[in-house]
């Protein structure tokens, strides 16, 4: 492991000021489940580590009118245990259950998962389906960005050098909303997704009033399958062959790579079935 300077900050302001000072030459330490591993493997070139674990402003899950605010330091275990989220935003709870192992879920944070910007980040697909908004703060003040504008590529985001993700803002679920998250891994736990899909549906009078589909691990970032969404929106009858044909369109929207977990060809082919499997859990597909 290389040597580095370690700073433990008490509040957001201190963290932002230090960030400004070090610019690119710093990394934030939240849960550490990713950073510590990379430090040990000498993959971190930055010389300053800012430990933000003690910043109160980044903690807690709160109900704010029809929104839920999740602090970026909230761990996956906290999400899984949260009554607010179980009631008003169950998709993020389901996805959090699939993150790593109990030890990783106890330490790993949602903010870390987002800012790492891995296309395989398990918490990200549901946030796409929720149209999540990110509250960011820097020396220039705060701003709110839509999730769709946040990711720029694997490991890349729009975050400025002195900017911190403070919280994630979600809209509370309504009664006629349903969702499903499925993650395909080489094994059933402690695994990085080969591919994942997440669907949120709003139904009224038996038809799909609205639908959001997101896919993980099949493109440089998590993506929304808007083409498929558009075809499905308004659908009333759910015939198997037709739905599979629609799901096939997802191929046009993804651009996966080949790695040790799976080939590009497999990811392309299996994505349509992952979307189909999720739809099958949400709709009464016949024939």
């Amino acid at each position: 492991m290389r040597e580095f300077e370690y700073y433990k900050v008490k509040n957001l302001k201190e963290a932002i000021n230090l960030s400004k000072k070090f610019g690119k030459n710093k990394r934030f330490l939240a849960g550490g489940t990713d950073l510590i591993v990379r430090l040990k493997d000498n993959l971190i070139k930055e010389e300053n580590i800012i430990d933000i674990k003690n910043i109160e402003e980044l903690k807690g899950i709160k109900e704010v009118e029809d929104e839920i605010h999740i602090g970026s330091l909230v761990t996956f275990s906290e999400i899984i245990e949260s009554d607010i989220l179980k009631k008003y935003s169950p998709l993020i709870v389901e996805a959090s259950k699939k993150v790593g192992s109990p030890q990783i879920r106890n330490k790993g944070t949602i903010g870390g998962n987002i800012c790492n910007a891995s296309p395989a980040g398990d918490s990200i697909p549901p946030l796409f389906c929720e149209d999540a908004k990110f509250f960011l703060e820097s020396t220039n003040g705060s701003r709110i960005v839509n999730i769709e504008d946040f990711f720029k590529g694997p490991g890349k985001t729009i975050l400025k050098e002195d900017e911190i993700l403070v919280k994630i803002i979600l809209k509370k679920w309504k009664e006629n909303e349903f969702g499903f998250f499925n993650k395909l891994g080489q094994r059933n736990a402690l695994t990085i997704a080969i591919a994942s899909s997440c669907i949120k549906i709003k139904k009224s009078d038996g038809k799909i009033e609205d639908i959001k589909i997101s896919l993980g691990s099949v493109s440089p970032t998590v993506i929304r399958a808007k083409k498929v969404e558009n075809i499905l929106r308004g659908l009333k009858e759910y015939k198997k062959d037709e739905i599979i044909k629609i799901c096939d369109e997802v191929k046009e929207e993804i651009d996966p790579i080949t790695d040790v977990r799976g080939s590009r060809e497999y990811r392309i082919e299996v994505s349509k079935y992952l979307v189909f499997e999720a739809l099958n859990n949400l709709l009464n597909i016949r024939g």
Partner: peptide
Amino acid sequence: VIIKNGEFLVKNFSTYLIPTSMD
């Protein structure tokens, strides 16, 4: 253990997967 051109593509337990209790 996947090896390509003499290089190990799988080097530790994050990529070389063995069954967990969930499997």
